[in-house]
Structure formats: C-alpha cells, structure tokens
C-alpha cells in the first residue's frame, strides 16, 4: 500500500493501518535500536515510545519523505537523545580515532605478510560472527550507519533524512566505520593465529 493511502487511513482512525505501518517499519527501527541501545529494557521502552509518537503525530508527516524514513528518524533521534542523556555518546572528536594511523600501519603490515591467507581465514572462520562482534564494538552511530547502508541498503539521502547528518559527514563516518571494521577483522585474525 502506498504511503499516502496508509496515512489517509491512519487519519481516519483505522487501527489496522497502524499495524501495517508497524509491520513495514519494524525491521528498520530494530536495526537502529539494536545498534544504538544495549539494555533490553530500555530498548522496549524506546521502541514503544517511538510508535506512540508516530501514532500521535502522524499529522506532522510530510509527503516529501517516505513514511519509513519518517518513523526511522523518530527512532534514531529517540536513541540519540537516550545516549546523550546516559552520557554514552562519543564527542565528535573522539569518533575520529587518534590511534587510527597506528592501526592502519598494523593492519597493512598484516595484510602484507598474510597475502591470500587472510582471505581464506575470512571465508573459513565464520566471517559472519566475526563481523557481528566487530559491528557491536563500533561506536553506536557508526554501527547504525553500517546497518542502514549495508543491511537496509538505503541511499545516502535517506540515511541523511533519518540521522539529520549532512551527506559529507555521513560519508566520512561510513568510511571510518568500514575501516574500523576491516581493522578489527584483520587484527583479530592475526591475534588468534599467533
């Protein structure tokens, strides 16, 4: 069903339309909330708040964006404010890791010496679980961006609408997030191997 039709039904008080909205956006909201909030209890409160706010303020939805992006944006900002309140949000400067150059040198050294071994390892040693741990160790905003771009396959514009980050900042954060992830996978391979 088209967004416009769904909103029309919601404004007419059709509760089955709201169930459909939840069904259409639950995956996206879960990606955001799981990446940004660790506590199971806080996740539940946050998600229920997100949908309550979507229900209350559906009149504020503007048709120049997608309904899923609008709900995603409510979810992202709820989590962002939660992290800020809990003082779990890294200041922007800290997101730009000071040890990045050292890490890059180490990673490159390993890559130089391991040649095709590392590729075999990546395939053999359950890449998925290594990656999952790697993503969980990223700063929450980086993990969210990876999830939105690579898991949900959203465009830069859509992610920018959800996070209110300018496209330039968004691309820069994504670049750093991928690099951190690659460093994690490569360095963990070597640690295990030694």
């Amino acid at each position: 069903m088209e967004d416009q039709e769904l909103v029309k039904r919601l404004l007419n008080g059709d509760n089955s339309a709201f169930t459909l909205l939840v069904k259409n956006t639950e995956g996206l909201v879960a990606q955001i909330v799981f990446k940004m909030v660790d506590s199971l209890e806080d996740r539940r409160d946050l998600v229920q708040d997100v949908y309550l706010n979507a229900y209350k303020y559906i009149r504020n939805f503007k048709s120049n964006s997608k309904l899923s992006t609008w709900v995603g944006s409510i979810a992202y900002h709820a989590c962002y404010n939660y992290l800020k309140k809990k003082k779990l949000l890294l200041p922007e400067k800290q997101l730009e890791d000071e040890n990045e150059d050292v890490l890059e040198t180490m990673t490159n050294r390993f890559i130089d010496h391991s040649s095709s071994e590392i590729m075999e390892y990546i395939i053999k040693k359950e890449l998925r679980s290594v990656l999952q741990i790697g993503i969980d160790q990223l700063p929450p905003i980086y993990a969210t961006l990876i999830a939105l771009y690579h898991f949900q396959e959203m465009s830069y514009q859509e992610i920018s609408e959800i996070t209110s980050l300018p496209e330039g900042t968004l691309k820069n954060y994504l670049f750093r997030a991928r690099k951190k992830l690659k460093d994690y996978v490569v360095l963990n391979y070597k640690k295990e191997d030694l």
């Binding site: 990606q31 799981f34 949908y51």
Partner: peptide
C-alpha cells in the same frame, strides 16, 4: 578483496527482531 568479502551478502545477515509487543502503548 578484504572489503569485498566483508561486505558481500551483508544484507543476508539475520535481521534483529523485537520479542515484545511494540504496539501495546498505542492500543
């Protein structure tokens, strides 16, 4: 190659799911 392998098929990763009723307060 490392980047290609890492991000290949990432969309097939298990999708996180909520194990609670998200609509309860709305109802």
């Amino acid at each position: 190659e490392a980047y290609k392998l890492m991000f290949k098929d990432l969309e097939d990763f298990p999708q996180p799911m909520f194990d609670f009723h998200v609509q309860a307060p709305v109802k």
